[in-house]
């Protein structure tokens, strides 16, 4: 089945079995191995990418469902010699240990910061009508879909705070 995707700004045409997940399309068919397969169940968040600016578990969605969509993976957020502010903050705050969940954490956090600035409330937002504030509680709640078995959570939260401060 023919699927057209814009991956990190580049048009890609794929001819895939319609049952191919977006994650397998990225890893196996496009050679983009930055997105990781942790559980393949949508439970761990290691495969998080952004589709049209919103974060999504790439293992829980089929590539063919995204015909015409814009997909941003960790490779599209920055490169080793050109890091995004969030990536820089993950380095300076040591926001990881083994690093396997890190691409998903960074994709997730990138979209999450946009969700907050767009005023989307979360489970812990006290005033649903007001502006969401970037508190540690908000970050923890909104990042709970991205597991880190090494439990680098304190530094992950700190890195997100730091990057958000830079953006503000």
């Amino acid at each position: 089945m023919q699927t057209h995707l814009t991956i990190n700004g580049t048009q890609r045409r794929l001819d895939l079995d319609p049952r191919t997940t977006l994650l397998d399309a990225l890893r196996h068919h496009l050679g983009l191995t930055g997105s990781k397969k942790g559980c393949d169940h949508g439970q761990c968040g290691a495969c998080t990418v952004m589709v049209n600016g919103r974060r999504i578990n790439a293992c829980l969605t089929l590539a063919c469902m995204h015909d015409g969509d814009e997909v941003t993976t960790i490779e599209g957020i920055g490169q080793p010699d050109d890091l995004s502010p969030l990536q820089q903050a993950f380095v300076s705050e040591d926001g990881f240990q083994c690093g396997y969940c890190t691409p998903g954490q960074i994709c997730s956090a990138t979209a999450m910061l946009q969700e907050i600035s767009d005023g989307w409330p979360s489970h812990v937002t006290s005033d649903l009508a007001g502006e969401a504030e970037l508190t540690s509680d908000e970050i923890s709640e909104r990042m709970s879909g991205n597991l880190c078995r090494c439990s680098a959570y304190p530094n992950i939260v700190q890195a997100i705070h730091k990057a958000a401060g830079k953006n503000a």
Partner: peptide, 16 residues
């Protein structure tokens, strides 16, 4: 100092 290969980890370039 941060972990070795830190810039690779945060860009998905660290190879497993």
């Amino acid at each position: 100092l941060p972990h070795d290969a830190a810039p690779l980890h945060v860009t998905g370039a660290a190879r497993y």
